[in-house]
């Protein structure tokens, strides 16, 4: 790729440039063009007043706040649940690590739709959990496990926790286990050694995982649509409503643009703190000396 003869490269693009071209073209057509269309539509269908409408619309504001609220909850839960898992994976022997990694990737690679429907089967009023509890006589009315915030959080955390785990794991692998031992020699109980040494050193991974989960949560549609209640509408669902029910693609586009702007603004701030490469998983290493 880095040919010293730049003159030759100008005349004849090298292999990798050519190899990347179809992919680039695909992204441009399948992603770039629709994106531009949406931005254009939000301004011209019928006019930029779409945005004015949004900022005065109480329902949209509520769904936007709710989206951020749910995303924050999902992020917090994913990090809290993901950290111990990542820690176990980073500090265990090869056998246990392989099992933990295998379980993680199995879930990671399973279709989002399948996983979401599976939670529907488990949590519905006639689902596995409620049936079991009813049969055991623990309860006599089905518990409200679905069509509410609880179900949305369960589903979204399940889908997003692998991102948090992998980011934290990459960071923890870079923290020498000897540092924790050194802290223990110096009189720190294992818990304190962890608190003073391992945790602060793994914070970059935690931050990267949190940013990733948060950003992905903001745009979640399928899981909240299938597991959430009709009153708990997120921005993504509002967009679908605008387009499919109210037949107002202009306002829907404006909503999408606002959501995109929110994500980009957040990424811009986060990348100042954490580094974009780490969030995207391009650079997983860190200096520990």
């Amino acid at each position: 790729m880095t040919s010293p003869e730049t003159g030759r490269r100008l005349r004849r693009p090298d292999f990798w440039t050519l190899a990347g071209l179809p992919g680039l073209l695909f992204v441009l057509l399948a992603f770039g063009v629709p994106m531009v269309t949406i931005v254009v539509r939000s301004l011209t269908d019928p006019s930029p007043e779409n945005f004015q409408f949004l900022f005065t619309d109480e329902l949209f504001r509520r769904s936007l706040l709710r989206t951020v609220y749910v995303a924050l909850l999902v992020t917090g839960l994913s990090v809290l649940l993901g950290y111990p898992y990542a820690y176990a994976m980073a500090r265990s022997g090869p056998v246990l690590r392989t099992w933990l990694m295998g379980a993680l990737l199995l879930s990671f690679w399973t279709s989002l739709l399948v996983r979401t429907f599976a939670w529907g089967v488990l949590l519905s009023n006639t689902g596995v959990v409620n049936d079991l509890l009813l049969d055991l006589g623990v309860i006599d009315q089905p518990l409200p496990l679905i069509r509410n915030l609880f179900a949305v959080l369960v589903g979204m955390v399940h889908v997003l926790v692998p991102f948090a785990i992998l980011a934290i794991y990459a960071s923890l692998r870079g923290v020498d286990a000897e540092l924790e031992q050194a802290a223990q020699v110096m009189g720190a109980r294992p818990a304190r050694a962890f608190w003073h040494v391992t945790l602060p050193l793994s914070m970059p991974g935690v931050a990267a995982g949190a940013v990733l989960v948060f950003v992905l949560s903001l745009g979640f549609y399928l899981t909240p649509a299938l597991l959430g209640g009709p009153a708990d509408i997120l921005v993504s669902q509002s967009i679908v409503l605008q387009v499919q029910q109210y037949l107002d693609p202009g306002v829907g586009s404006a909503m999408a643009v606002v959501l995109l702007a929110l994500v980009l603004a957040f990424l811009a701030i986060a990348s100042k703190v954490v580094g974009l490469g780490r969030i995207l998983g391009v650079t997983g290493k860190e200096g520990t000396s």
């Binding site: 020498d176 000897e178 540092l179 031992q181 802290a183 050193l201 520990t288 000396s289």
Partner: peptide, 8 residues
């Protein structure tokens, strides 16, 4: 420690 194990 051989690696010094200083807290970075």
């Amino acid at each position: 420690f051989q690696s010094y194990a200083l807290f970075p």
